[in-house]
Nucleic acid binder design. Structure first.
Lengths: 214, 214
DNA sequence: CCTCTTTCGTGGACACTGTCCACATTAGCG
DNA sequence: CGCTAATGTGGACAGTGTCCACGAAAGAGG
């Protein structure tokens, strides 16, 4: 063998296309979070999945928290996209009272469904590391909060919600749905039966409706 | 020196009174949680605080999660006690409508105040490790949920809340307060100004009131 | 086409963690 | 007084985040 062929058995370092390793690390981190929540996003494991040495991660992220922040953003985006999909399934013209109410319900349903179908990702979405301001790189229209705001604006437009009660009402509503989601997935209510769970979720949405149409 | 005095310079092993080490570990764990949340409850650090070797902890807890579960219970108890104290500050006979409503408000206020005054403990209270069923060793009358239930029962008794709406209403209410507490302490709303925070909290309580008196 | 600089993956190391094993001491019992 | 179970010790291992110095590949400039 006289050829200096560098590939037959020992190509330990083939460089990936630009930015591919970083994307792979985030993707691996998302899968880890999906399977085990934010604590399962361990740097070395992600590098292993990508097929790279642990330190390589530090060429793309300052530390583990920066990777986690990326995973967190991705999880939040997936939540927003599921909400968008659920909203789109509701028929009815914009401004129609019943349709507007069903769209708000779709938001809450998608939120709580996501929490149960992807408990790890849901927890990761809210595991934003300290020192990472929320919404630094969020697209305003693909964030759970902005979707909720749009639905509430429509409720005002449809005459369901009094305009003078609109300001800031998104926070208690968000909190109610979020609270039910966390309590029933990771919290003390995590061991509810399927039917109990459905009842609590329905009651949560009814509770919100009662407050809005008061 | 003929006495077999075992104390002058090298008493590396003096055994503490029965059960003292265990209590010390839990207390140390609570302080760690207070300062840094559930992730800061690290076994070795707790043993250091007690002045004992790391492995000694395994004579009292099966693993770190069992210590964390103990810390979690302690934190939950402190939350319940603060709620009890805040309820007690409300004057007015049982069954009086306004007093009953103020007592419910006191519960929510104490809950959210605890979350902000002790964010680490609050997070730890809800960091119950998997495989530890909720309320295994809880005193029924010193649990946040049972306090909330009592307040709601009084609201029915006072004629504020319709009896047919009572069943299960504690869950959406708990969720609303809990959601606001988590979103504004560890969640995306953690960077609110003091006045914004007070407003969101007031709005949360008003939102609950609106739904109840619907 | 060749060189040089910047990018980026590697190898090795350190401190720290949870957890296990075998050993030694002590407390409290008969 | 002596025995047994409870409890603390010492040492070890795997796994983690992170740092440093090195080397190779990619891309820019001549």
């Amino acid at each position: 063998m006289t050829t200096a062929d560098p590939a037959p058995q020992a190509p330990p370092r083939r460089r990936r296309p630009r930015g591919d390793v970083r994307a792979g690390l985030v993707a691996a981190g998302v899968e880890l979070a999906r399977a085990g929540g934010p604590d399962a996003v361990v740097l070395r494991e992600a590098t292993r999945a990508v097929g790279v040495v642990p330190n390589a991660a530090y060429r793309h992220f300052a530390d583990r928290d920066e990777l986690l922040a990326e995973v967190c953003s991705a999880a939040m985006l997936e939540l927003a996209d599921r909400m968008t999909a659920e909203i789109a399934r509701v028929r009815g013209k914009r401004g129609n009272p019943e349709a507007a109410q069903r769209r708000l319900g779709a938001i809450g349903t998608a939120y709580m469904r996501f929490a149960h179908e992807e408990p790890g990702l849901f927890a990761a979405a809210y595991a934003l590391p300290e020192q990472h301001p929320y919404g630094a790189a969020e697209v305003p229209d693909r964030t759970p909060l902005s979707l909720l705001r749009a639905a509430l604006d429509e409720l005002v437009e449809a005459g369901v919600l009094a305009p003078e009660r609109r300001a800031g009402i998104e926070y208690p509503i968000w909190a109610t749905v979020h609270g039910t989601a966390t309590l029933t997935t990771h919290g003390p209510l995590r061991d509810l039966t399927e039917s109990q769970l459905r009842q609590v979720e329905a009651q949560t949405l009814a509770f919100i409706g009662d407050s809005l149409t008061q």
